[in-house]
């Protein structure tokens, strides 16, 4: 894949939940090697967008299309999207009592590898890989034995999302408010993890409420989402302007 090839193309996306329209004609194109940031006030539909891209069935697509690597993303089951290389780091990662991180992640990785025509990893190979990446994220020794997200601190949950991303090596990573609830050390560690995945053949969509994260992950493009639409796009300096003037600066101007 070459730098510049289109990875994701969202065209006139209208989507909602429980009869409520949330996205109202969203357009976005992401190419290989790019990092895009979406910023927007609370309730503007950022998580709705990520849920629609990941395939959460409660969300209803009313109009528009989403093309991922030349394929109709909206037709794929969530697991198929994952195997095709779409990854969502959840804003609120789910606790799964009784399923330990090692078993969960090894199963996921092997599903993804099988799909990509790679050999499955055995327990030892997986453990070696996992341990190496855990060090990077400064995750505790017993991490793999713990139930997925159960009893994790806010920071650990977010680190776990990034840990999974690094192991699964997605083509398109969507990071939904990965910075929220992180202290400054955790933010640095998590950002390093995300930056490590910045590669010419991959793309990242970083969703955030605050500009803070973008000091660590420098985006190529910044989009402002308000009222279910992207109302302004620009370079990384747009984030700073937003920080200075607040969202009202744009929303008021528009409305």
């Amino acid at each position: 894949m070459n730098n510049g090839q289109i990875i994701l193309e969202i065209k006139n996306l209208h989507a909602g939940i429980e009869g409520k329209k949330i996205l109202k004609g969203l357009n976005l194109t992401i190419k290989a090697g790019e990092v895009h940031a979406i910023m927007g006030p609370n309730g503007s539909g950022k998580s709705t967008l990520s849920a629609v891209l990941a395939g959460k069935s409660e969300y209803e697509v009313i109009e528009g299309e989403v093309i991922y690597m030349g394929k109709n993303l909206l037709e794929m089951a969530p697991e198929e999207r994952a195997k095709e290389g779409v990854f969502l780091a959840f804003q609120y990662p789910v606790e799964i009592p009784g399923v330990n991180c090692a078993y969960f992640l090894k199963s996921a990785l092997n599903e993804v590898r099988k799909y990509r025509g790679l050999s499955e990893l055995d327990a030892i190979e997986f453990l070696n890989l996992a341990k190496e990446k855990m060090k990077l994220l400064e995750l505790p020794e017993d991490f793999l034995k713990r139930s997925v997200n159960e009893g994790f601190s806010g920071g650990e949950k977010k680190k776990n999302e990034i840990f999974q991303m690094i192991i699964l090596e997605p083509t398109l990573a969507i990071l939904d408010e990965t910075d929220s609830g992180l202290d400054i050390d955790a933010l640095r560690i998590v950002s390093e993890g995300i930056n490590q995945m910045r590669k010419p053949d991959k793309a990242q969509l970083v969703i955030t409420h605050y500009q803070r994260l973008l000091n660590y992950i420098v985006p190529d493009f910044v989009h402002v989402l308000a009222n279910g639409q992207i109302i302004k796009s620009g370079g990384k300096e747009l984030a700073l302007e937003l920080e200075e003037h607040g969202y009202d600066w744009l929303t008021n101007g528009k409305g």
Partner: peptide
């Protein structure tokens, strides 16, 4: 959904 979003059927 969480498990599926990671590739698990």
């Amino acid at each position: 959904f969480y498990l599926r979003s990671r590739g698990i059927n």
